[in-house]
């Protein structure tokens, strides 16, 4: 799978994190993380639990405000200012482990609401865009249903469509398949693979190593709040340089 816009990489990265720190009380969750993601690049973040990978991805759109360092997304720098935060979030879509669909709204309304409120689209425009993306995640027929009526895999695909409706430049996935029953994982991964081949910039925290190997341009391995390895999948899987990565891979690939 070739990166469509290789030359964009040199000009300006889609995500730029420089020496980012985060504390939860006394716990130092991110210890000076520096990471650059180019436009169109697909990066998979992995690591043992508690390694800070979720904190890292959640700091990119300010859900976890960082305490030190600098985060820039498409030229917008995250500050404590609400307007800057909103500007970054307009560029970034996010998919959660627990889907977080709005249970009191139908699938279609889930996809339409933010388009009309934050993108200034009319209801008709928003609905036609919503249906377009529901087609893309292969569940247009569920548009009129409430989320509770859908399976986990369907809910997660709606969550992806809801994010895409805002036409973000970057998509973040925080363990998108970890809450799913095994038989539903592939339908979500298929949608994500499609998205990757369309050239979307993606950062994904996942334990799905098969997906990582197939789709990722780079694998970032974290442990104890620092980036231990950052390499192309072939080298990461075949010859990891650190002992910690080797141990992690043997554990995760063993079962």
């Amino acid at each position: 799978m070739n990166r469509p816009e290789n030359d964009m990489l040199q000009s300006s990265p889609a995500i730029e994190m420089i020496d980012v720190h985060k504390w939860f009380g006394n716990f130092h969750a991110l210890k000076g993380v520096t990471l650059s993601v180019g436009a169109g690049e697909r990066v998979v973040i992995c690591g043992p639990s508690g390694s800070g990978k979720s904190t890292l991805i959640r700091s990119i759109n300010g859900l976890e405000p960082h305490d030190a360092g600098r985060i820039t997304v498409n030229g917008f720098t995250l500050t404590e200012n609400q307007r800057d935060l909103f500007a970054v979030r307009r560029e970034v879509g996010m998919v959660f482990q627990q889907f977080n669909l709005f249970p009191h709204l139908t699938v279609l309304e889930n996809c339409v609401l933010a388009q009309t409120r934050s993108r200034g689209r009319t209801r008709e425009e928003a609905e036609s865009i919503a249906m377009e993306y529901l087609h893309r995640v292969r569940i247009p027929e569920q548009a009129g249903k409430y989320p509770a009526r859908l399976s986990g895999g369907q809910q997660q695909r709606v969550a992806i469509a809801r994010s895409l409706c805002m036409q973000p430049k970057v998509m973040l996935f925080d363990e998108p398949t970890s809450a799913l029953d095994p038989e539903m994982i592939s339908e979500v991964l298929d949608v994500m693979t499609d998205l990757a081949s369309s050239g979307m910039t993606m950062v994904c925290v996942t334990h799905e190593m098969g997906f990582a190997r197939r789709v990722a341009d780079r694998i970032v391995f974290m442990d104890e709040g620092i980036i231990v390895e950052d390499d192309v999948p072939s080298r990461f899987f075949e010859s990891p340089t650190s002992a910690r990565a080797r141990q992690f891979l043997s554990q995760i690939l063993a079962h």
Partner: peptide, 27 residues
Amino acid sequence: VSRGQWEAAASLPLGRIDTYRFIVLPQ
């Protein structure tokens, strides 16, 4: 109302008033 609802709304993004009006208060 669960934290995930706030986070999903914030990520879309929806503004604070819209989040209360359309997401949090109805639930």
